[in-house]
Structures are given as structure tokens and as C-alpha cells.
Design a protein around this nucleic acid. Structure first.
Lengths: 223, 223
DNA sequence: CGCAATTTGTAACAATTGTTACAATCTATA
DNA sequence: TATAGATTGTAACAATTGTTACAAATTGCG
């Protein structure tokens, strides 16, 4: 097997080495090596292929008008680059793609990848799962970012946890993680939680939260 | 042609009536009628099919713990319901789906729709385009919602407009629209713009904005 | 042109959040 | 069971945004 890492890729889930190899043989693909710091794609450039990180590590990076660079995210093996954008209307890379270290990318043209999806239902299904799951994630994040107040975000978060109907939930993240998820600072979140407790909306005991005033909570998460 | 509205559907773009009809014949599908107010799907229910609005109008609606309903969005012909979520991992409807008025839905099982995608590249390509474009849209919105300050959002927005490099851009939305896009109130946006002008970062003349201090603007959109 | 509707500018005050710093509490593990 | 590290609680002050209300400017249209 040339690329054992592909077995662990969500795009090739459920396929064994032989099948992966066989499928790859049926299309054009190439492997490109990028030295640390090398640019694999520029922001605005058309996305013409599926690129899967085989080894090393890549990053997405933006350049603003003043030339400052801002790192957006890392992409590590066996993830694909910009997977949810590839087939978008006039798809262009939203960021510069740069190698964090010496890295290898498996590159399959968009049309060739379409062929793969048509020839193997699992490949198709895997790709659909990847992008739909991504869309679900993005959509959920927007919901939280759209609430105006921290109390609104937290109230909605609580109501979305399993057990909310019974009035008793277990928060499954640290305040630090929650605050990052909400896009606010950690002390502000702690204060908001404290105030909600003072007002009798909830009762907090570390990770366990009892929902005392359902109507009050629902008023907070209005929009 | 049974469903002429499908020609205008993004999922069937590029296919003529005969082709659409032929493809539909090859799979199981059904048409269901919903009276105004009828529930087509409940939040949390598994998504088992692609549902395309043929006539009437549907809406997505949430119910919170206190039983209050919040309308999320309308879906009109020839759009599909929850199209970007259908094939997600353990896909469930994120909202209740309810008929705004008497409506007809074309319903194709997930597996059947997979068959359609495999049998016609255009169907596959159309669906990929729809969900990738949706992911792009969501991703772009998150970028704006993630900036902490209004000035940051506006600075980034300006830098993303065509002509930003030349230092002169035309804002293509009203302040009202922009403020909704940013998730802030209109007067707050106006104030932020006014302050940025006072500080010499930009010069505003109605829709035309000159970028005077690129470095200052880029500092604002740090994130 | 003239009028109505839309869009934008502005102000004062309230509410919310960020920032910074430090203390208290919990948790894993040596 | 100590002890370091992580997590949470809290406070004071600055900065930002929301709210509300009204005026000015612009635009579309008869």
C-alpha cells in the first residue's frame, strides 16, 4: 500500500488498502512534496483539486491589506484541504495554504474525484458525510454566535444538552472551552453564569446545572 | 412534465424535462401534500429523505423548553429542505418543519437520491455545488460574527470588497443590511463608522469609502 | 419638481462585555 | 497524601454596544 494513512482518512473510510489502491489506479493523481514554508495554494486561486495531507502539516493563513498574516487553522494527516469548499460555485481558496513543515499532499483533480465518487458509493457517501457534517457544525456555531448576550448563549446551550427536559444537565466542557465556543472571554462567561444563578434561573454545582426557571431561560435565548 | 418547477431547482439545473422525468422514474419517490400548519418533520427526527418544495411554502421553526416557537427560515419552491444536512453523520432535522400554507413536497429517499447522483453526473455535481456553496456562505458569516468589535467587522468587510487594494471601495449594502449581516444594531454600526472616520482611518462619502490608513484598519481586524 | 419613504447621522444613557489580576477549588498523579 | 496544574470564582474599572429618539439627507417615483 502506497499511502497507508488514507485508511484513516474520512474520505476513504470503510475501504481496505486493496480497494483504495485499485480506485486510485483508475484516475489521475499525483503526490507533491512541499518544503516547510512552501505555498501550496494562494487565497483567491481556483480550487481545481482535492488535496489530502499524507504527511507533515499544512496551515491556512490569511494576508490582510497591510501584509500581516493571520493563521486560520491547521490541517493534519489524513485530512483534506478546504474539503467543504471544493465544489462550491466558483470555488476559490479562502486562505493561503502553506506547509508548516516538510509535507506531502495527495492531489486528485476535481473531475477525477467526481469519477471516484461515481464509481464507489462509499467514496461518495464519505464525502457527502464530511461536508454535511461540516455544514452542521458551522450552522450550530452560527446559532451560538448570533445570540446577543452571553446569558442567551448559555441558556440556549443548556437547553440543547441531553437531560434539559428533565431540568438537570451536565455541562460537557470547561468554561474555557465554552467561552471560546461562544466567542467571549472566560471571566465574562463566569460572571454571566453567576448572575443567572443569583437570579434563580439555574443552580450550579460544578459541572451539574439544574434549570430552575425554564420560562426565564427561554426569554434569554430569544435572539 | 409532472413537476415543471424542478427545472428551476438548483438540484436539477442543466437537465431538461425529459431527463428529469426519466431519472425520477428510475427511483422511488412520492409527493405529499401538507395542509397549512401541518408538520412535515419534527426537530430531532432522523433525516431519511430529500424533500423538495414543489408548491406552497414551508418554514423551519424551533420550540424551546418553555414551548415558545421561534421561526428560523422559510423554504420556498424549488428549494430543498435541510439540503446541507441530509448526509451528515447521524443527520437529524435541526428544526420542526411546518407548512406555511397548503404545500406539496417531492420526497426522495436518501438512498434513492444517492442512486440518482451516481447515475447522472449533473445531479451529483449540482448537489455538491449546493452544499459546498452553503458551507462557503456559513463559513463567511462566521468570520464576521467572530470579530469582537464592530470596527473590526467593518474593517474586514471593507478589505474584502473589490477595489480594496486600490484604497477605494463601494459598499454594496445599506447600513441596515450590513448591521444585520454583522449581528449588531444599526445605530451602533453608524457610530463605529463615524468614529473610524474621525480617527482618519477611512473617508466616507455615502456608499463610497476611501481606505486612508491601511495599517490601522488591519490592526482592527485582528480577530 | 415635489413628496413620501428610505437611509443615514447623532446623542444620551443603560446594559453588557472585556481586561486584568488574584484567590479558591478541584483533579490527576507522583 | 502532597503537590502541581487546571479550573473556577470574583472584583474593579475601561471599553464597547444596545436602546431610544429625533433630525438630516438622499432616493424613488408620480
Amino acid at each position: 500500500m502506497k499511502f497507508p494513512v488514507l485508511r484513516r482518512s474520512p474520505l476513504f473510510a470503510g475501504l481496505d488498502d486493496t480497494e483504495i489502491e485499485g480506485l486510485l489506479e483508475s484516475v489521475n493523481y499525483r503526490v507533491r512534496f512541499f518544503h516547510a514554508g512552501a505555498v501550496a495554494a494562494l487565497a483567491g486561486e481556483e480550487i481545481s483539486s482535492v488535496m489530502i495531507v499524507l504527511s507533515g502539516s499544512m496551515k491556512g493563513e490569511m494576508t490582510d491589506l497591510a501584509g500581516r498574516t493571520i493563521k486560520i487553522e491547521d490541517v493534519n494527516p489524513p485530512q483534506a484541504l478546504a474539503s467543504a469548499f471544493i465544489y462550491g460555485a466558483g470555488a476559490h481558496y479562502p486562505v493561503n495554504v502553506i506547509a508548516n513543515m516538510d509535507s506531502e499532499l495527495l492531489i486528485i483533480g476535481k473531475a477525477d474525484y467526481l469519477t471516484l465518487m461515481k464509481s464507489d458509493t462509499r467514496i461518495l457517501s464519505n464525502y457527502l458525510t464530511v461536508i454535511c457534517t461540516k455544514a452542521l457544525f458551522l450552522s450550530g456555531r452560527i446559532r451560538f454566535l448570533s445570540f446577543r448576550t452571553i446569558r442567551g448563549k448559555f441558556a440556549y446551550y443548556l437547553s440543547s444538552l441531553p437531560g434539559a427536559i428533565s431540568g438537570r444537565v451536565i455541562v460537557d466542557r470547561t468554561q474555557q472551552e465554552l467561552s471560546e465556543f461562544f466567542g467571549v472571554t472566560r471571566p465574562s462567561l463566569a460572571r454571566a453564569i453567576g448572575e443567572m444563578e443569583d437570579e434563580g434561573l439555574i443552580a450550579v454545582n460544578r459541572r451539574e446545572v439544574r434549570l430552575l426557571d425554564i420560562r426565564g431561560l427561554s426569554r434569554l435565548s430569544e435572539g
